[in-house]
């Protein structure tokens, strides 16, 4: 049977939700795997969120829908509230405790990373928080190698941003 990994990433527009999905997808493709990413936008009246549903597999992906996420990167309180219901004990939820307070009733393990603060402190701009999350996530993604993700960062981001994003990735990947 196929190895199928489901990753849900959600937050506000501008937080790099789609970009993280693009990097993961590109890395999977470069590694010879199959991947899909659905992007949806909630309207402002519904609370405003961007959602990437990323599936990575070693064979053709039938359903691109993330029904039982293996990983959920919750970049905002609204996103967390909206999609935590999909998460079970198998789902690792990555979140920033400064922004998202974990629901104690949820069976899922939570991994709090103060990515915005780290990004501001170490790299001078909170904008790199998403790549710190990507780094942390990658350390748990057995299917993808770090080298392929680094290659994908280089492919998907403009060159002038490579250095800081690669630093952000390393910072995230080093977290335990």
């Amino acid at each position: 049977m196929a190895k199928r990994i489901e990753i849900l990433i959600s937050g506000y527009g501008g937080q790099g939700v789609v970009r993280i999905g693009q990097i993961l997808g590109q890395a999977a493709v470069n590694q010879g795997l199959y991947t899909s990413m659905l992007i949806s936008h909630g309207t402002e009246t519904r609370g405003g969120y961007v959602r990437s549903q990323v599936v990575i597999s070693d064979e053709f992906i039938d359903s691109p829908v993330v029904e039982r996420p293996d990983f959920f990167c919750a970049f905002s309180g609204i996103a967390y509230t909206m999609f935590k219901g999909l998460c079970g004990s198998q789902s690792l939820i990555l979140h920033n405790p400064d922004i998202v307070s974990p629901d104690p009733g949820l069976a899922s393990p939570h991994w709090g990373i103060k990515a915005e603060a780290v990004a501001t402190e170490e790299l001078g701009d909170a904008v790199f928080a998403n790549v710190i999350f990507l780094g942390a996530l990658s350390s748990r993604l057995a299917l993808l190698t770090s080298e392929h993700i680094v290659e994908a960062i280089r492919e998907r981001l403009p060159q002038r941003f490579h250095e800081k994003n690669l630093q952000a990735f390393a910072l995230g990947r080093a977290r335990k």
Partner: peptide
């Protein structure tokens, strides 16, 4: 929309 906006291999 999901075919056109969606990303895949």
């Amino acid at each position: 929309q999901m075919v056109t906006d969606g990303w895949e291999t």
